[in-house]
Computed example of a mutant assay.
Amino acid sequence: MTVPGRQAMTIRYLLLHAYGMGGTIRTVINQANAMAAAGHDVEIASVVRRRERPQFPIDGRVRLLTLSDQRRERPVDSLGRRAWRRIRGKIVPPGEFAASYFTERVERSVIDYVSALEGGVLVTTRPALNLISARRGPAGVVRVAQEHMNLATHPEAVRAQIARHYGALDAVAVLTGTDRGEYQELLPGTPVVRIPNAVAAGRPAPSDRPDGLVVAAGRLVGQKGFDLLIPAFAEVAGRHPGWRLRIYGTGPKKEALLALTAEHGLSDVVSLMGRTERLDEEMAKASFYVLSSRFEGLPMVMIEAMTQGLPVVAFDCPTGPADVLTPGVDGLLVPARDVGALAEAMIRLIEDPGLRTRMGDAAAVTAREYAPEAVMPLWEDLFSELLGHRREKSL
């Protein structure tokens, strides 16, 4: 039910691929579910669909629609390319990380959806969609752009488009204080708010941090730095051969990471576990969590590990870890990409169970700031305020 005195709102979330995997998809779906549970009228529009079923649970009160269904086989051109890949759109800049999705046909489907909306709130969830909303969204709709990656990770061409067009939006929502400062500097006059992602509700019992197991998780891509974590763990295994590392996730770097594991003689020590639908339960078996990313937005899996009472060892990569952790209290931060320092920090936690306990207890306290009951009212307040401003302008 909605909070007494607060009117139900119409809220639409626009996702690139609501049927896919990934942190942005999971957190946006969690947000939509929470808003529906609070009594609001909620819709998720998926730009593309390439799977039969969503990978994350969607509340039955949330409408789910698809703008470009790509499940069926498409005809190929003379070079063997799928027809829906042939012609690029005109709004999404080439440097946007998902630009390859935005063919002319796909981009047009998004423009048609956005431009036909009336009233309510539209929440877009990546630069490509934020730019379409800014340039084609109707003035009668409150338009909120979510940025799930820090500004510096976007190529210069994308940052230029952000600077040029985001001023048409009603608000830009970012994940960390660092992000907020960077976007405010780029977008003077545009409201920029910090609202972190919320962890999923209903966590299992916290870990008792037994000896022997370290966990990491994420897409097997260069950003996540598992090619740095594996050689760091080789140093750990040399001093503590009874310890194991499990890495959860799938992605294009799997074979390269398996080869790196074999190269370091760690095939019996480091396991690539693939995807699991019960990551929280697997983390509850662990001693501590390691984040080896080269860059992050807000590392939600790390925060989920903290809800399990796991201390964290993390690279101090651009935005994310330092915005969450208090070094020496709930985790250990080491210089970005410093393999030796990462190894030494893991060894420190391995050799000091008391430190693991103290940091793990503190991590669970820190993680409460990201609970749904702490985060979702921030979204409701923002949407209500923006809708109120819109009504005042229309009088």
Rank of each mutant, 00 (worst) to 15 (best):
G5W: 10
R6I: 15
M9K: 13
Y13G: 02
Y13E: 13
L16D: 13
H17T: 00
Y19T: 06
G20E: 12
G23P: 10
I25D: 12
V28M: 09
I29Q: 04
A32K: 08
A36V: 05
A36F: 08
A37S: 11
R49Y: 02
R49H: 03
E52M: 03
R53T: 10
R53M: 10
R63S: 14
R63K: 14
T66C: 11
S68L: 02
D69Q: 14
R72P: 00
R74G: 12
S78H: 09
L79T: 08
A83W: 11
R85A: 11
R85L: 13
I87P: 00
I87S: 12
G89D: 06
P93L: 11
A98W: 12
A99L: 07
S100K: 14
F102Q: 03
T103W: 13
R105G: 07
I111S: 03
D112Y: 05
G119R: 08
G120V: 11
V121R: 04
L122T: 06
R126Y: 11
A128C: 04
A139H: 10
V141H: 04
Q146V: 12
E147G: 00
H148F: 08
H148N: 14
L151Q: 07
H165Q: 03
H165C: 01
G167K: 08
L169V: 04
V172L: 11
E182S: 15
G189K: 06
V193Q: 11
P196G: 14
V199R: 11
G202F: 10
P204I: 08
P204S: 09
A205I: 01
S207R: 14
G212L: 05
A216I: 09
G218T: 06
R219A: 13
L220G: 02
Q223S: 07
G238L: 02
G242S: 06
W243Q: 14
Y248K: 06
G249W: 10
K253Q: 15
K253F: 07
E255D: 15
L257P: 05
A262M: 07
D268E: 15
L272E: 04
T276R: 14
E277Y: 14
R278K: 13
D280A: 15
E282C: 11
M283I: 05
K285F: 05
S287K: 09
V290D: 10
E296K: 10
G297V: 06
L298R: 04
P299D: 09
V301M: 05
I303R: 07
E304V: 10
G309C: 01
V312R: 02
A314E: 01
F315A: 02
T319Y: 14
A322N: 05
L325S: 03
P327F: 06
D330G: 01
L332I: 15
P335N: 09
P335W: 05
P335Q: 06
P335V: 06
R337A: 15
D338Y: 06
V339M: 03
A343Q: 04
I347M: 12
P353H: 09
G354I: 08
T357N: 06
T357V: 13
R358V: 13
A363E: 01
T366R: 12
Y370P: 04
V375C: 01
M376G: 00
W379T: 04
S384V: 09
S384C: 09
E385M: 12
L387F: 01
R391G: 04
E392H: 15
E392P: 00
